[in-house]
Design a protein around this nucleic acid. Structure first.
Lengths: 230, 230
DNA sequence: TTATGAATCAATCGCGGATTGGTTAAACCA
DNA sequence: TGGTTTAACCAATCCGCGATTGATTCATAA
């Protein structure tokens, strides 16, 4: 059966049979090349040629130090925040916030429990009592995350956490260090109240709009506008 | 200077001075409690009380095994995909896709270069030539990611990658194993063409709408509808 | 009763060896 | 000489064990 001079093809056939057997066992990782080539009775060179064919076809994927796996590609288990933050800028972060946070607020208006709303109102009151900018920003962070939690969509919550981590990394060092407390007429106070009120009243569109307007206000302060017409 | 019976306050004062000195040095991690309490000449209990005050205030944050750091909170460096995927379901994933992918398509229509569009059209042609469902899904993945890359917004691209990884983990095991190839009248072919065409023509709203309709089609197949009226 | 310090716990870090895919070169055979 | 196999080596990753660290408990003493 083993045709001399065409060991590559024989190895490919054996490998496909091996994969078919492994597919239904549920296992995704296949043995190391050094073991597999001996187990199949082919040279490592031929085995690697066959593996290369299957990899180009998308049936398997390999990585140094990890092994060879069946599947279309490596499901990246962890996402590096600094890798994202290092190649972006505050403007892009704000665009992303403007895209997902209003929709998160909309979902929150649909799914928030009474406990969720009570927690938001508690944070709302605490923002007005904050004695320093640092405390205020902490509570502000908490409030925005409470809204994301209230959406009851773990995926949106995860995306929010990623976005939040990127934002905090990007604006690293720009934190307000003046010890003053937020002024009583700070626009965010009313913004936050409108958002929470819309969520409490199950006003889906209102919650999304209020969140969008709030973020636009924040962005206006973050990125100075030079147009006098603004 | 050290008032007996009020070691807690003395420790707090010393700690604040220490933090002020460290703030301008740029270092964020402060020594271990066992060293610091000896260095400041206070008991560990008093030091921990002072640290607790500063932590509640948001000036520092601590974690077992890591240490104590200045700053409002731990900037999570990595996000675990499986942690998100393990607590969600395909419906929530689809909701998240419906929120961000149309907006990504809109940004792509605004920022895509000619090279980006050429790459998309190349993938578009390859989807029709796919010999197996596995190949088709690989190219489909690639096309969607090319659109995210064309948005030229690294944050949106990062969020897309997270969402994609979650999606692939959630639907793990549901991959189409029948070796047949996608039918020539598969709805995604026309959907994809409309999306790319809208991006090429810089039709922002059209790109977003086309992407949303495409995802609705995909979701309709993913989650069987029971209403006959549909 | 209160405060102090030591002991202990669980989570994390860090380093060294083992494993793995990728690459190169020597050995081998026809 | 030409092609194949085998072995050795490389860099990236994993894994296990000891050290470190914040959190907790408890005995001791003032």
């Amino acid at each position: 059966m083993d045709i001399v001079g065409d060991g590559g093809h024989a190895a490919l056939v054996q490998l496909q049979a091996y994969l078919a057997q492994m597919d239904l066992s549920g296992e995704t990782r296949l043995p190391a090349e050094r073991e597999l080539c001996e187990s199949l009775g082919v040279s490592r060179g031929d085995l690697r040629k066959a593996l290369a064919v299957l990899e180009k076809d998308g049936r398997i994927w390999r990585h140094v130090g990890k092994g060879t796996f069946v599947g279309s590609g490596p499901v990246e288990e962890t996402i590096g925040i600094s890798e994202i933050a290092g190649r972006t800028n505050p403007a892009d972060v704000m665009r992303a916030r403007l895209i997902i946070e209003p929709e998160i607020a909309r979902e929150a208006a649909l799914h928030a429990t009474l406990d969720d709303i009570a927690a938001m109102r508690k944070s709302l009151a605490q923002t007005r009592e904050a004695a320093t900018w640092r405390q205020y920003e902490n509570i502000d962070n908490l409030l925005h995350r409470q809204i994301a939690e209230a959406s009851s969509n773990k995926v949106l919550l995860g995306l929010f956490d990623v976005l939040n981590a990127v934002r905090r990394t990007v604006v690293w060092g720009r934190l307000r260090s003046d010890g003053a407390r937020p002024p009583a007429d700070h626009h965010s106070f009313e913004d936050h109240e409108r958002i929470v009120e819309a969520i409490a009243e199950r006003d889906l569109a209102g919650a999304a709009t209020a969140m969008r307007l709030h973020l636009l206000q924040v962005g206006r302060r973050l990125i100075p506008v030079h147009e006098a017409a603004e």
